[in-house]
Design a protein around this nucleic acid. Structure first.
Lengths: 155, 155
DNA sequence: TTAATTGCAAATGATTTGCACCTCC
DNA sequence: GGAGGTGCAAATCATTTGCAATTAA
């Protein structure tokens, strides 16, 4: 599999683009279909990364006949165009999030397994790599107990 | 799937244990078989995280009849016992590494896709999480160009 | 019109599991 | 001797792909 378009924070992908199009030139594919619009809307409007099955479920409210194959085909196109990013966490299938979200990292709760966005970044980590290694991007995930689960435990 | 034993740097899993057993009490399963020993040895002796197929290939030099099912069954047990950790990178199947390796992170080269260990750590990142979130561990991956590929390009 | 896109179903690949046989303790 | 392990093959699951029908431009 190609190594392109991982979910990582490139040192230059900071500009969330004007407001609409993230795609370099042209559009995602060539045409604008209801299903493609629905899929993209679901991802763009989610405050957290979604699983393919979650995207399907929500998008089907808009386009009932939508199939999983279409979800995957569009996810691939959206990834290639840079409109969305992948969020991979151990023991789970890949999740997808809008590339319009500003630079951030993730926090996964060990109790409820939910994944939260963290709008903070340790900054430049190029000093961590050995001499000769050029660091272009980084990806960070924190693990622990989220506010909800922590509150539950304290009760 | 349980969220236990992800590949992440717990704030307390720093002690690589005396020399042999990493398992809390008892052993991995209950018995010591040739295949289990071979699998563990392959992982413990590798300087980098290995794919299941790689572990199988190397371990078969010792136990020819070894099957992939046994690899997976033992990887699960080894993970549960804390003897090994998972290293998940986007677009690739999970890799496995010995938990005896000291705390470290990973660097994946975007040219050759190889994964390198980085023996450096940004340290405490608990300040990055929002109030109410308890950070227990973190996982970090750097992306860029490794020394080999960088040298090739400069040539 | 007509090439892009979709939906469904079949194909892949990775990982898991059922089961009969084997082997460590 | 018997519970724990293993090997193989079949079963799952997630993701991909073939293809005929549909649809946006």
């Amino acid at each position: 599999m190609s190594a392109a378009h991982r979910h990582s924070h490139d040192h230059e992908d900071d500009a969330p683009a004007s407001d609409e199009g993230m795609a370099p030139e042209g559009a995602i594919g060539t045409r604008g279909t209801r299903q493609r619009a629905a899929i993209r809307r679901v991802i763009d409007e989610s405050p957290r990364p979604l699983l393919p099955a979650e995207i399907l479920a929500v998008a089907q409210q808009e386009v009932p006949a939508l199939g999983m194959a279409t979800i995957y085909r569009n996810l691939k196109l959206l990834l290639e165009s840079g409109a969305i990013r992948t969020v991979e966490l151990p023991g789970a299938v890949a999740r997808y999030e809008s590339a319009r979200h500003a630079h951030h990292h993730h926090f996964q709760c060990r109790r409820c397994d939910r994944v939260f966005d963290i709008h903070a970044c340790p900054g430049d980590l190029s000093g961590l790599a050995p001499a000769g290694f050029a660091v272009e991007a980084h990806e960070l995930t924190l693990y622990g107990v989220c506010a909800d689960c922590g509150a539950d435990a304290a009760r």
